[in-house]
Simulated scan of single mutants.
Amino acid sequence: MTTEGGLHIRHHFIPFAACRHLSSLPGDLDDYERQAIHFCHHWLKGTAHFTFHTSGSTGTPKRIKLSRRLMAWSARNTLQYFGLQKGDSLLVNMNIAFVGGAMMLVRAMEGQLHAYVQAPSRLPLSEIPGKQFDFYAFVPMQLQSMLHEAPRLLASLKQAKGILIGGAPLSKHLEKQLLPLQARMVQTYGMTETASHVALRPLGKPLYEAMPGVHFSCDKRQCLVVHTPHLPPLVTNDRVRLHDATHFEWLGRIDNVINSGGIKIQIEQVEEATARLLEEMSIRCPFFATGIPDPLLGQKLVLVFPEKSLTKAAEEQLLQALRQRMEHYKAPKAVLYQAYIPQSPSGKILRQLLDDSPSTDPQNKADH
Rank of each mutant, 00 (worst) to 15 (best):
Q269R: 09
T290F: 02
G291I: 04
Q324N: 13
A321P: 03
V304A: 03
I258M: 13
L303T: 02
L322F: 08
R325N: 15
D238W: 00
L336V: 04
L296I: 10
F248T: 01
S309A: 15
I267P: 01
T274W: 01
K312P: 05
P286Y: 06
R284Q: 15
S309G: 13
P295K: 07
S344Y: 02
Q338I: 02
K330S: 03
V304G: 01
T246I: 06
E280A: 09
L251V: 12
A321E: 14
L301H: 03
T274S: 07
Y340I: 06
F287C: 00
R323T: 11
Q320H: 12
Q338K: 02
P286K: 06
D244T: 04
T236W: 04
N259R: 14
I254A: 15
G252N: 02
N259P: 11
Y340G: 05
E316K: 08
M281G: 10
A245V: 04
A334G: 04
F288R: 05
I292R: 00
Q299F: 03
H230T: 08
A273W: 09
A273Y: 08
V235Q: 15
A275F: 11
L251R: 04
Q320N: 15
G291N: 07
L278W: 01
S282R: 10
L303Y: 01
E315G: 07
D294A: 05
S282P: 06
K330R: 14
A339W: 09
V302T: 03
E327M: 06
L251N: 02
Y337H: 10
E279P: 04
F288M: 07
T246P: 03
E272Y: 03
L303E: 04
A321S: 12
T236N: 12
V240R: 03
E327F: 03
L310Q: 01
I341Y: 01
L231F: 07
E307K: 12
Q299P: 02
H230A: 10
Y337Q: 11
D244S: 06
P233W: 03
F248R: 00
G261W: 05
F305W: 04
R323Y: 08
K308E: 14
R323I: 08
V257L: 15
A339D: 15
I341A: 02
R323W: 09
M281N: 10
N259S: 14
Y340L: 07
